[in-house]
Design a protein around this nucleic acid. Structure first.
Lengths: 254, 254
DNA sequence: ACCCTGATACTCGGCGGCGAGTAATCGGTA
DNA sequence: TACCGATTACTCGCCGCCGAGTATCAGGGT
């Protein structure tokens, strides 16, 4: 039991299917597609065979027999082991009970949004908003159809989850667009400045540094939960961090 | 320009920083941490150097000079190119304007939730709920501190985004827990049945198959937007898909 | 004068993901 | 019967990701 958990959720899906009955990898893949699991768990052939092999090495599954029908290629049939069943339960427990940070592209883009001129940002955010609206409509239609077809909600939980997240993102994008367009967004004048005067990187850098000095007395980039805790435990004034600014490596806003 | 876009958002962050001024990779990494970008963009040393090398191959950045201070290891300083600036803008535009499906662990877990007994599921979901609540509190505190410290909202957009998503997830989990605990969840009797009678995989499989037959006349797994569109364009009755059940592998449409 | 810690600045080997490629068979058609 | 495309069932090799490891130096303490 000294092994580290696999990271690919596809392995979890494999365990879940083999927990129903033994299968060969190709059947696993078709079943996954048939049950729409592939919408929630990234599936492709290469990874599937990699993952199966790795599960076998870990002792979670065993190749029971290889069958050949006619002169078709051999099919290796795998079955789950007791260790595999334990792993399945443990892994599910961990995934359900413990939230972990996931890095999304849009979050990355938002953190770099100031590299775009505000006008462009509004235009692109509006495009995103439009696309999200369309997806949301399609999702609602699918949900209606699911109801009509008597598909119990149990089998659509993932769908409802992504729908909920999409709607939240939609509201966020909506509000963001408005606050930029109406120029209510706090700090928008800084954003303008990055794209107005600073035609050359050199000047831009000077501006960024100047801005930095004005925020929190140069202690920018230290607004972490850790710092917060520190400030609250140390009763009294706002925690004089050693030495004002550092000067050297100092960079842009954030 | 015949190259395909890189997939690692870290490369985007590198471009964004080099757009301010030339740097060497290690300084990029420290700056990224300093500005808290590493909270939104996965950063580690290995990937950083891989990504820099790959950007250089693509002509987006160039090594301008290598400096050595004292007998320290050499520092290779990179600068962005015109092609790199174009790439930066294009990539940002794409990320902001086009939503793409991201696979999260929790979505995967939800899609496999029926492998857990309902009681266990409630317990684990409650644990998640608790953890999310704590994260949410910490986030609110951080936000307050940011306000106090005069950090303009522009530089906290990513944070507000993840906060919004977390709150949405919290509401979803809350509702889910309730609907399972009160047994209002549609289809919960099926869920019970998986864990009640079926002590052995064989019987479980029989049950699953039986259930499958009852849903939408065996056409389970076909509830896709594509099918929906098809049904709506073909005016008239609910689109008699060719032949009732297919029996064998049944490949769902997609 | 000596050591120890921490920051600096990468290097390297392995592993996992992935998608194009392969090869055989089945079913329908001319 | 000959052919074509779809389906079945994988294989292979590249490349990106990653984190532990390495080597150097500055600064502070004793």
């Amino acid at each position: 039991m000294a092994r580290r958990r696999m990271s690919n959720p596809l392995a979890l899906a494999v365990l879940a299917l083999l927990n129903e009955r033994p299968m060969h990898p190709y059947e696993i893949s078709t079943t996954l597609r048939e049950r729409r699991k592939a919408d929630s768990i990234k599936l492709n052939f290469g990874s599937l065979y990699t993952v199966v092999e790795s599960l076998e090495r870990a002792g979670c599954i065993v190749a029971t027999r290889t069958v050949r029908e006619g002169r078709r290629p051999e099919r290796t049939i795998y079955a789950i082991t007791d260790a595999g069943r334990v792993e399945l339960d443990d892994w599910m427990a961990e995934l359900v009970s413990t939230p972990v940070k996931e890095y999304t592209r849009f979050e990355a883009a938002l953190s770099l949004l100031p590299v775009l001129p505000p006008d462009d940002a509004v235009r692109m955010l509006s495009e995103r908003r439009q696309r999200l609206l369309e997806e949301s409509e399609a999702a609602k239609a699918t949900a209606r159809l699911a109801t009509v077809e008597n598909l119990p909600r149990i089998f659509r939980l993932e769908g409802e989850y992504v729908d909920a997240l999409r709607d939240a993102e939609l509201r966020f994008v909506d509000a963001l667009i408005t606050s930029i367009a109406t120029r209510e967004l706090d700090g928008i004048e800084l954003w303008d400045v990055f794209h107005a005067d600073a035609a050359r990187p050199e000047e831009m850098h000077a501006l960024v540094t100047a801005v930095k000095e004005k925020i929190a007395g140069g202690r920018w980039g230290e607004l972490t939960p850790a710092l917060l805790a520190e400030m609250e435990t140390l009763s009294g004034g706002p925690a004089a961090i050693e030495g004002g600014g550092d000067g050297t490596t100092g960079g842009g806003p954030r």
